[in-house]
């Protein structure tokens, strides 16, 4: 089963790269809820294709299904890198509808969101196993990076030998602490940015081209 799945996946990848004319890397944007994954995905997609990936929100778990933006061609230093950007639901170990109630969402809707978010996490984890060639791990630089979820996910990515970049997002916030993020994952390169404000995006694209090209 696993073999077939892998085979199928690689066949489809080969097919898609045939049509794309070059190998397209599928880059998963992972991270805890509300780290700014969708904002980053939208920023990348808008910068290079003009389209957005999905709606952004302050409400956690706004992204409850993995969304893909295919064939995002990033040109750096005369070199072109084509990636599929996969914006994934925030990964967490607990989903509680009461969390949504604080955002003026009715209980029924909150329960539904909660259910969808849980499915989203399952989907994100499945994608991580089967469908991504590289990972951008997005963290809110204003939050403590030493969490179980972060450690576990980065550990999984490492065990897969996937290229990974740590993005310390939200550096526009006063309380952002990029160094704390860098210290949490010293084995990986940490790139500071504000996806919302578009700060330091040049370095972001440089690194993407470098790591995933």
């Amino acid at each position: 089963m696993g073999l077939l799945t892998t085979l199928k996946s690689s066949v489809s990848r080969a097919t898609s790269s045939l049509f794309a004319g070059e190998e397209t890397k599928r880059i998963g944007i992972y991270g805890p809820p509300n780290a700014g994954k969708t904002t980053l995905a939208n920023r990348i997609a808008r910068d290079w294709t003009g389209d957005a990936v999905g709606p952004e929100s302050h409400v956690p778990h706004e992204t409850r299904r993995a969304r893909r933006k295919e064939n995002v061609e990033i040109k750096r230093n005369g070199k072109s890198v084509t990636i599929d950007v996969v914006d994934t639901p925030g990964v967490t170990t607990k989903v509680d509808y009461t969390e949504f109630l604080e955002h003026d969402i009715e209980k029924e809707d909150a329960v539904r969101r909660s259910r969808e978010a849980t499915e989203g996490v399952a989907e994100a984890m499945h994608w991580l196993r089967e469908d991504v060639d590289g990972v951008i791990y997005v963290l809110d630089a204003a939050e403590d990076p030493f969490t179980q979820v972060n450690t576990m996910l980065v550990g999984i990515v490492e065990s897969q030998d996937l290229p990974v970049l740590i993005f310390a997002n939200k550096i526009d916030l006063e309380e952002a602490n990029v160094q704390r993020v860098a210290n949490a994952f010293p084995q990986h390169e940490t790139v500071p940015l504000s996806a919302l404000e578009g700060e330091n995006m040049d370095e972001v694209y440089d690194k993407i081209a470098e790591y995933f090209g």
Binding site: A110, V121, M125, H126
Partner: peptide, 12 residues
């Protein structure tokens, strides 16, 4: 309903 605990390693 609406409250879940996820075992990430199992999901993965």
């Amino acid at each position: 309903p609406g409250q879940y605990e996820l075992n990430l390693m199992e999901l993965y």
